[in-house]
């Protein structure tokens, strides 16, 4: 039985800078993963609904707007409400150090900032999925 890693890549909120999300999506694809690319200007509800229906292992949220401290907690809250808190959430974008701590406190497994190399993200996702 071959188990494919499935990842949802999405940009919550009003933020049009999707190059980073696309680069990460391509890197994960090239690492053999199935990447559901959901695009931008999404509500936390849309993201969680897609993550559940697509049965992904990981949600990757890209935020560069500064609204991470409202949007990411909302995603985490809805995941919990739907009984899907086992889906791992990682965040990428421009996140101040203080906020990284806060995001990790509410259950975000990792935050990848500027300068991250895509192989680091690939390796990280493979590890957390293997751990279950």
């Amino acid at each position: 039985m071959e188990r494919k890693i499935r990842v949802l890549i999405a940009k919550p909120g009003l933020n049009g800078h999707d190059r980073g999300a696309k680069v990460v999506a391509r890197a994960l694809r090239d690492a053999g993963m199935e990447v559901i690319y959901l695009g931008m200007r999404l509500t936390p509800d849309q993201i969680v609904n897609a993550a559940i229906q697509e049965d992904v292992d990981v949600i990757g949220l890209s935020v560069l707007s500064g609204a991470h401290d409202t949007l990411v907690p909302e995603v985490m809250r809805i995941l919990k409400e739907k009984g899907a808190e086992d889906i791992k959430v990682i965040v990428g974008g421009i996140i101040p150090d203080d906020d990284v701590k806060k995001l990790k406190e509410i259950g975000v497994v990792e935050v990848f900032g500027p300068g991250t190399l895509t192989p680091q993200i690939v390796k990280f996702i493979k590890e957390i999925v293997a751990k279950g």
């Binding site: 494919k4 090239d30 053999g32 993963m33 199935e34 990447v35 690319y37 959901l38 897609a50 229906q53």
Partner: peptide, 24 residues
Amino acid sequence: TGGAILGDRLRLVNSIDERVFIRS
């Protein structure tokens, strides 16, 4: 690699909610 980008859902995202089940 066996990997894939699934990009169809993106075009449907604004017309769907929990009542429409979409799988890529």
